[in-house]
């Protein structure tokens, strides 16, 4: 178990179909859940940090409630069993008590709701996006596009167990991961080509449905370089369990280098005829 716990593996970025030239091998941290994990994965985005901090507060309140009720139940079992207390009381009303146990939960809920709504508005908000990427769900793979960068577009397909390479975790690895720069406000547009899928990355606090016929928008800013793993989170048919999300977070410089090679590999070869473009431009005036 120990060696699986913190597997720092040498991760060769030639995974990306040889498109990425970063000067050979790079040490990459893998961010995913670990055996016997009981809580969240380490938060690695501003949203995730706030989500996890809020949950820590909530967990304390909830644990206190559960322990309180358990305590009362234990006391009742000890004190009010038929041997210890042969004659039952006949009390069936206490207005003050009833008011208290209505009001106190309301106060607790207000204490929860205020930071909860603050968190909601924070995670929703798209800051001035420095980069836009587009994610399209398909049965059963993801298509990633970089509309800001000459329409780089590629599919990201699950690697079956018998084709895994050294260091690739089972069920989570893809042939071409989504490459993103760290410390960048990234706007993510989500669409679907068939059924509803869900693009999810636990360590980044990222999750949103891809729905056919509409664009959804969310955002992320990644704190740490490394490889992030997630899975499709909406039942999307037979191979729902086998369309993982893999994000390769790299430095801004490495990202720009990757863009150059990726544009050659995946960029669109402009198929629009000049004539129509001119026609369109003429209409526009």
């Amino acid at each position: 178990m120990g060696d699986m716990l913190k597997r720092l593996s040498v991760f060769v970025l030639t995974l990306m179909a040889g498109a990425m030239v970063l000067g050979g091998e790079v040490m990459a941290q893998q961010y995913r859940s670990e055996p016997w994990q009981m809580g969240f994965q380490e938060p690695r985005s501003p949203s995730a940090e706030r989500i996890f901090a809020f949950h820590d507060m909530l967990l304390v309140i909830e644990a206190a409630i559960v322990i309180f009720v358990l305590g009362i139940m234990t006391y009742i079992i000890v004190k009010f069993n038929s041997k210890a207390n042969p004659t039952p009381s006949k009390t069936s009303h206490n207005t003050l008590l009833e008011v208290v146990w209505t009001i106190v939960p309301i106060i607790i809920l207000v204490v929860i709701a205020v930071p909860s709504l603050k968190l909601l508005y924070f995670t929703d908000r798209t800051y001035d996006p420095e980069l836009t990427i587009k994610v399209t769900g398909n049965q059963w793979y993801w298509t990633y596009e970089y509309p800001d960068n000459n329409d780089i577009e590629f599919d990201s397909v699950y690697v079956p167990d018998d084709e895994l390479e050294e260091g690739q975790p089972r069920m989570l690895s893809v042939d071409s991961p989504l490459v993103l720069p760290v410390d960048t406000n990234i706007r993510i547009l989500l669409a679907s080509n068939d059924v509803i899928h869900n693009f999810a990355m636990p360590a980044l606090g990222l999750k949103l449905d891809t729905t056919p016929g509409r664009a959804n928008e969310t955002w992320v800013s990644i704190n740490d370089e490394g490889t992030y793993y997630g899975m499709c989170s909406e039942l999307c048919g037979v191979n729902h369990g086998f369309m993982p999300v893999q994000i390769e977070a790299v430095s801004k410089e490495a990202f720009n280098e990757w863009l150059v090679s990726a544009e050659e590999e995946f960029g669109s070869n402009d198929s629009r005829s000049d004539e129509v473009v001119k026609f369109a431009a003429a209409l526009g005036q």
């Binding site: 699986m4 995913r32 859940s33 670990e34 994990q37 009981m38 809580g39 994965q41 069920m171």
Partner: peptide
């Protein structure tokens, strides 16, 4: 625990960490 660690529902197999 599995859920907080990120395991999705409705999947017939799962990453080894959730074993």
């Amino acid at each position: 625990f599995s859920g907080m660690a990120g395991m999705p529902r409705r999947i017939p197999d799962y990453p080894d960490a959730y074993a």
